[in-house]
């Protein structure tokens, strides 16, 4: 949903950043840092991810001069974060462990019988739209809690794809995962949210 108006606004922001405009930096930090954090959390713990994002903003001051708009500003920033994380992991000789072998969440997988039919089918239908559901503050809080409990790789994929509306190929590029592995991450994360909402709708408990 990148309209011409948004592109103009982004171009104006980029020019201001290139001129070292402090107010433009404050605006950009607030607009883009949460996505940058989501990328960093894919690779490392919360404290290290915050350090990486801070360091990246300092490098942006010089790097933005060479920004050529081949990608959007958001994608460019996310790539900087991903590359920095990968370099740091290489220097620490740490590997990112990810299990892509299971498509179904274990809790959901257990709800089917041996003949692959539902043994415990969905207990109710979510009749309301997402916007209406979110009007319930308790559900919104519960969603926050469950999102923060997701494995980092699932949460980052979900944040970039759903919340930050990146295209699949950009998410793959930023997080360095294959298209099929991204599909697994997204599906697993959505199942966790489905299980959470089902429990909440049924019992009111988070």
């Amino acid at each position: 949903m990148n309209t011409a108006l948004q592109k103009d606004a982004e171009h104006t922001l980029i020019v201001a950043l290139q001129q070292g405009d402090a107010a433009a930096y404050e605006k950009a930090v607030r607009e883009y840092s949460s996505g940058m954090l989501a990328v960093a959390r894919f690779y490392m713990d919360a404290a290290s991810a915050e350090d990486i994002v801070q360091d990246c903003w300092v490098t942006v001051i010089d790097a933005i001069e060479k920004f050529e708009s081949r990608s959007g500003l958001k994608t460019w920033l996310h790539r900087i974060v991903a590359n920095r994380c990968k370099n740091k992991l290489r220097s620490n000789k740490r590997e990112v462990n990810t299990d892509f072998s299971e498509t179904l969440d274990p809790e959901l997988a257990n709800r089917f019988n041996a003949s692959r039919r539902w043994q415990q089918p969905p207990r109710l239908r979510f009749d309301e739209s997402a916007d209406v559901l979110l009007e319930n503050g308790a559900l919104s809080d519960c969603l926050d809690k469950h999102l923060s409990a997701l494995p980092e790789n699932q949460r980052s994929a979900l944040m970039l794809y759903e919340a930050h509306q990146h295209k699949s190929e950009d998410v793959c590029n930023i997080l360095d995962v294959s298209a099929s592995n991204l599909r697994v991450l997204l599906h697993r994360a959505r199942q966790r949210i489905f299980l959470m909402v089902e429990t909440f709708q049924e019992s009111g408990e988070c």
Binding site: S129, A130, L134, L158, R190, I193, F194, V197
Partner: peptide, 8 residues
Amino acid sequence: VSTDLMQA
């Protein structure tokens, strides 16, 4: 709906 929730 769960997917929409994430987007919203």
